Computed example of a mutant assay.
Amino acid sequence: MKRDTRIVHSGRGGKHAPGMINVPVYHASTIVFDTVAEFRQAVAKRNEQVLYYGRRGTPTQWSLADALTELEGGAGTVLYDSGLSAITGAILAFIETGDHILMPDSVYEPTRSFCDMVLRRLGVETTYYDPMAGAGIADLLRANTRLVFTESPGSLTFEIQDLPAIAAAAHARGALVLNDNTCASPLTYRPLDHGADVVIYSLTKYVVGHSDAMMGAAIANEATLERLRRAGYLYGHSVSPDDAYLALRGLRTLATRLERQAETALTLAHWFKQREEVDRVLHPALPDCPGHDIWKRDFTGSTSLFSIVLKNDSDAAMAAMLDGYEHFAIGFSYGGYESLVLPSNPSGVRTATSWSGPLIRFHAGLEAAADLVEDLEKGFERFNAA
């Protein structure tokens, strides 16, 4: 099946909800058994999809996990209560005191903070690397390097990493490769097909798609699944069945939403390229974006996100532009139906590469592209008048 068709049908059917299009919301904590034999059978199969205890899941969570596993071509999925929980939970599943890990310099800022504030305290060393290192990552691998983390595209600066080259170098030295694929979405990139051992998502973004639920997921290959599941259980990760239901509902329309939003985002990116106020447009589909050739080779499309760098970095002028937007609300996250804008300055957190000055990240929603362009045009009028 094509991916659009799999999105509609994956995780559904008689296995979890016979005769129903949508799996119901199953609330459960304690599960009771009629006999000791039934109890012991459940205990023996507690790592499978059997009713055992609410934290182990119900058909609502299992349906979502099955759908994600099928979409990614993985061996299994662990669900978390946020995207950051998925990142930290996956990392903690594979490291211990004395280990060394590699992180791209463009990584999501909370991931960086986790490394610097938590992993350091636990005796795990992090080295930040140029996201464009590719096969050159081999020079940074040590005997105690346990994992290489990747994020492609970068969530603010949109570098595309050469995951196959990184994975080949890491695996040759016995290191695992984790990939945060949130920015690319499950529709435009399949990291497990390109060498990743575990792919991570903030389902809060594109999958939920309506800015009303927090959730994360990690989908593992066969070699890493049991260790990921065991860590998820030991750390007590669990998700609400109500939120799992919302994620399932959002998943069914993801292909249609993302196609429209990606088209709008590319329209806006090309429009920004023509503006004299703009120094750079960071969008993976544009030839001058770092890693564009890799994007053309490995990705099937782009999404709703891109950033711009202005020639005039006056904070007052930028604030005047952003404060007056009608359709672009200022806020974190992305992937919902509404357009968003986020001012940021990556220069304060880069250590392996250099970055100078602020940027503005845009998320294209489902509004008409013409209305968004008009909004942006008025914004530049305020910018130039400030």
Score class of each variant (00 low, 15 high):
D243I: 07
A244S: 11
L246E: 10
L246Y: 05
T256L: 14
T256H: 12
R260L: 14
R260P: 02
Q261L: 05
T264S: 15
A269H: 07
H270A: 08
F272T: 06
K273W: 00
Q274C: 11
R275L: 15
E277N: 08
D279H: 12
L282N: 08
P284G: 06
A285I: 00
L286K: 03
G291W: 04
D293W: 00
D293I: 00
I294N: 05
R297T: 14
S304V: 04
S304N: 13
L305C: 04
V309Q: 14
D313S: 15
D315L: 11
A319R: 12
M321Y: 04
M321H: 09
D323M: 10
Y325C: 12
Y325Q: 13
Y325H: 14
I330D: 01
I330R: 15
S333H: 05
E338P: 00
E338I: 09
P343A: 01
N345V: 02
S347D: 13
G348S: 11
V349R: 14
R350V: 13
S354C: 03
S356M: 08
P358V: 00
L359P: 01
R361M: 10
H363Q: 09
A364E: 07
L366A: 12
A369P: 12
D371F: 07
D371Q: 10
G379C: 07
G379P: 03
R382T: 00
F383N: 01
F383C: 03
F383Y: 15
N384G: 09
A385K: 13
A386E: 11
